[in-house]
């Protein structure tokens, strides 16, 4: 069965991983790429990064954080053995994998998932990989064991100090940038986090790659919903990216555009919650 859910695993209070049968995607997946998923015939198309895959088993792994109607519904109703209506991919340009020097991979929150295959590929290709993974608190961290394996060293931070260092990811990042020669930084997480990482890198004169997450519709370059401004030029994140040079990104624009549908998102979420309550009653 295509798009069949092979397994579901909770990774935290609002995060789950899904292993999905998608042989075509698995056969071609590369770090940095994503898929577009639709849960059912009335569903929205949402982009999700390929967090892992196995060409042999024909499966891909998605890690989803519940932030609104679709992701909540996915967490609540997509079980082992069920099927997603659509899975399209792999989309976007793959990460450029360096083969020498030292790199830093910074992951914020659910950003751990997309960073993991990139770090793993960088290590396999011969770079020295320093990982930094941050979250608000310990319960929001996941895949620490995987990251430890994918990186030569790993720094954990939490906002409240419940695990690792009590700091934002930018603190250890700035220290590392000051202490040694870094060929490139990858930073994936909330837009604000990526913005501050980009500032730290600009100060140290180190190139930084970020993965942009604007609202998308098709994910194949035919609508322009995902427009971002990079280096003063308008780019389509789904086909020109999602990875871009972080120091070139117009972050305020990205952040503003992410809020474009806030009212509609709230309306959809409230309606969904009401329907769940009514179904339970």
């Amino acid at each position: 069965m295509p798009n069949e859910i092979v397994s579901v695993e909770p990774l935290g209070p609002q995060t789950k991983s899904f292993v999905v049968r998608a042989p075509r995607v698995a056969a071609r997946a590369q770090p940095g790429q994503f898929v577009v998923v639709r849960l059912h015939a009335r569903g929205e198309r949402i982009p999700l990064t390929l967090a892992d895959w196995s060409a042999e088993d024909g499966t891909i792994t998605l890690v989803v954080q519940e932030v609104g109607k679709t992701t909540l519904e996915m967490g609540a109703s997509v079980d082992e053995g069920s099927e997603l209506a659509d899975v399209v991919g792999p989309l976007g340009e793959p990460s450029e994998i360096l083969s020498e020097g030292t790199v830093v991979c910074v992951a914020g929150g659910v950003g751990i998932a997309p960073v993991y295959p990139i770090a793993r590929a960088l290590k396999e290709a011969g770079t020295h990989v320093i990982g930094i993974a941050g979250a608000r608190s310990e319960d929001l961290l996941f895949w620490v064991d995987r990251l430890e394996e994918a990186c030569h060293s790993l720094v954990i931070t939490t906002d409240d100090g419940s695990a690792g260092r009590k700091a934002l990811v930018t603190e250890p990042l700035a220290e590392i940038l000051a202490a040694r020669k870094i060929a490139r930084v990858w930073a994936i997480g909330p837009a604000v986090m990526m913005k501050f990482c980009a500032q730290a890198c600009a100060k140290a004169g180190v190139p930084i790659t970020v993965s942009l997450n604007p609202i998308m519709v098709d994910g194949t370059g035919m609508c322009g919903a995902c427009r971002a401004e990079v280096g003063g030029r308008v780019r389509f994140a789904c086909v020109d990216g999602p990875e871009f040079a972080g120091d070139q990104v117009n972050w305020d624009l990205l952040i503003a555009r992410l809020a474009a549908y806030r009212e509609e998102e709230r309306c959809a979420l409230e309606r969904y919650r009401r329907m769940v309550r009514e179904a339970a009653a």
Partner: peptide
Amino acid sequence: FPEYDTPVK
């Protein structure tokens, strides 16, 4: 919308 999930403004 909202019977279908995708909004338009």
